Simulated scan of single mutants.
Amino acid sequence: MSTLTRPKTDAVATTPGTLRGSARVLLRAHRRALWAGAALLALGIGIVVALRVWMASAKELCADGDMTPCGGPVYQPSYARTSSETFLADGGTVLLLVAGLIGVFVAGPLIARELESGTFRLAWAQAVSPAHWLAARLAVPAALAVVGMTVLIAAYRWGLWALRGYPYSSMAHWHASGIFPGTGPALLGFTLLAVAVGALCAVLVRRTLLSMSLTALALGTVALGLGQRRDELWPTAFRQGPDPVRLDSGDWVVDMGRLTESGRKLYWEDCYDYAAGPLQDIEACWRDLGAVAHFSEVHPASHYWPLQLVETGILLALAALAVFAAFRVLRRLHG
């Protein structure tokens, strides 16, 4: 007999308040985790506020952050500004890791530990159906995580906003892998996916450490896969001209090369033998192949929201599939 077989009771009918009651019990049982999450939220906000205060207090002589006389031939940014750029450049990656930790917690201490120890039987024997039991363990962390991550996204965007407009900035652009995931709704989609995958791994494996490891592996695979294929989520803008194509500073250059009169695209790989040869004359290669114009395929800054929304839709679809699978697995196992 499966270890998840529901105990027989005289009355197992649920009431409208069952889910609410399960949520209260869940919050009381994991109040230490809630305090830890609140502390993490406060820490994230505090770091961004501290960086903004540090920048505001830097001794700059000019409005653009120059520490040398305004209009002079030398531009020297403040250490506070360059340090803030360094700290915030990977903020999106940090927020992805935080979302992943939420999924790992759901997989381990929240669900798998109860299934492994057998304490789930106590709840199921007290007029709480398995579906309500799992729904509470999905709804509570999902709601809290979305609220907390929304606050962190707002704080992170507020921090990045202070770095806009500075000349000679070393800050990565909006499409950088360390920034893009943490500035929009895609992070909320990944957070919900983390909760769903954590629940699915927990009901499948029913072992705390193994469920946590499997969840981390699955979420890492999704994050890396989307990061490598993000430029394919929305059609690029095609630009061409007789001279090197002029690009805006916010453009995400996906590919570039030369065009022949027939419109055939030539890439660097087409001239690899020239580059490896003794002359290394790439221009001669282009001419021999009939190149007459330059082209580039880019994502301008206006593609930020389409890319964010498409990625969010993919993540939400994966989350819905994981939730559906988790309930199906639980139903099959408890009978």
Rank of each mutant, 00 (worst) to 15 (best):
K265Q: 15
P69D: 09
W161R: 11
L160H: 13
A56W: 12
Q308W: 11
R121S: 11
G91Y: 00
D251F: 07
A135Y: 04
H294G: 01
R332L: 13
G225L: 13
T150G: 12
Q126V: 00
R207N: 05
R332W: 10
A218S: 15
T260G: 11
A293I: 13
G257N: 12
F180H: 09
T82S: 07
T82R: 05
A326R: 03
Q280Y: 05
R229F: 11
R20S: 12
T260R: 14
G313Q: 04
R328H: 07
L144P: 08
A131K: 07
A58P: 03
A276D: 14
W133Y: 13
P278R: 11
A284K: 15
A33R: 02
T260Q: 14
V140Q: 03
E311T: 15
L200W: 08
F190V: 10
V323K: 00
R207S: 05
A237F: 04
H303M: 06
A135M: 11
V323L: 12
Q240D: 08
M67E: 05
H303P: 04
L226M: 12
L214S: 07
L224H: 09
L224I: 10
E114C: 00
D243I: 11
F180G: 07
A29M: 12
R137G: 01
A176Y: 09
L138I: 15
V197N: 00
Y166Q: 13
L210A: 15
A42Y: 08
A23Q: 00
R258A: 13
C285I: 14
T3N: 11
G159E: 10
G100W: 01
A216C: 10
E297M: 13
V292G: 11
V98H: 00
G198N: 04
F180V: 00
V140C: 08
W161M: 06
V128A: 08
V94E: 06
G182S: 02
V146Q: 15
D251L: 09
A196V: 08
A135D: 01
L204C: 02
K265Y: 10
T150M: 13
Q280N: 15
F190S: 08
Q126Y: 01
A29V: 06
I47A: 03
G184A: 08
L19W: 07
V140I: 09
L214G: 05
L217S: 05
P181T: 04
R332T: 11
G71A: 10
V104L: 09
R264D: 15
Y79K: 00
A38L: 15
R287P: 02
L134P: 09
G227Y: 08
E261R: 15
L309E: 06
A13W: 05
L34S: 01
M256F: 14
S22N: 15
A136H: 09
A127E: 10
G277D: 14
A216D: 06
L309P: 02
L4P: 04
P77Y: 06
